[in-house]
């Protein structure tokens, strides 16, 4: 199966030799959307069936829980939480992300199947928020993974989160939310940024 050129194979340099067989070494590839009515229809389905990855990365994760209750009821927009990254399409980064968490965020994001969307919740994901000068908290999430919608605030209320999701749905239906393709095209840039701060990179370069 060595049809691909050597250039497209990731080295996985930081994995021990015995583990390399377990992981894929292919780079992510951008999948062009088909144009026209068909893509609009698929985008409509994607927008109305957003499955959130149930990974609370920071304090903002507490704002996700009320969305399930009868007061906010995100199910009426086709949104539901999902416990595994394989099946989810929307990653809500809840607030500050420390370097330790960012490692898990990158890993989870790469395991999601495209098209996938990221929603930065809270000021901490925009510019660091109140942790802007912290030694261990990232300032801008979009340097590490592509972000579709930011919601400012500390913390934003669940209504703000719902408004952000509605904005994301409009973006998806307009065909503008192409974060996964963006990630694949600028893979080297994202990966360099990630490796700049994650010093013990003991995982494969791309997790599928």
């Amino acid at each position: 199966m060595k049809t691909k050129s050597v250039k497209t194979v990731l080295p996985n340099l930081d994995l021990p030799e015995s583990d390399k067989g377990y992981f894929c070494d292919a780079r992510p590839e951008a999948v062009e959307p088909v144009k026209g009515i068909w893509e609009n229809f698929l985008n409509w389905a994607r927008a109305n069936s957003l499955w959130i990855l149930g990974f609370g990365t920071g304090c903002g994760a507490i704002e996700l829980r009320p969305l399930m209750t009868s007061r906010y009821d995100m199910y009426r927009f086709g949104i539901q939480p999902r416990p595994t990254p394989r099946q989810s399409g929307l990653f809500v980064i809840g607030g500050y992300a420390s370097v330790k968490t960012l490692k898990r965020i990158v890993r989870s994001y790469e395991q999601m199947q495209g098209p996938k969307f990221v929603l930065g919740l809270g000021s901490c994901t925009v510019n660091g928020g109140m942790y802007w000068d912290s030694y261990n908290t990232i300032n801008r999430l979009d340097q590490y993974i592509p972000v579709d919608v930011y919601i400012a605030g500390c913390m934003p209320r669940p209504e703000a989160l719902l408004a952000g999701i509605k904005t994301l749905q409009k973006q998806i239906m307009a065909g503008e939310a192409e974060g996964a393709n963006d990630y694949a095209r600028n893979f080297d840039w994202y990966k360099a940024n990630q490796k700049k701060i994650i010093k013990d990179w003991n995982m494969p370069d791309y997790n599928w």
């Binding site: 330790k100 510019n127 802007w132 000068d133 261990n136 801008r140 010093k199």
Partner: peptide
């Protein structure tokens, strides 16, 4: 303990400039 793969000086020491470190490392907006 809390920091994984920390390579700088111990961060809670008072002569560690956390703002400078953050600006150099974390792409300030």
């Amino acid at each position: 303990f809390a920091l994984e793969s920390w390579e700088g000086p111990p961060p809670m020491r008072r002569d560690f400039d956390t703002k400078k470190y953050s600006e150099e490392t974390y792409f300030p907006r």
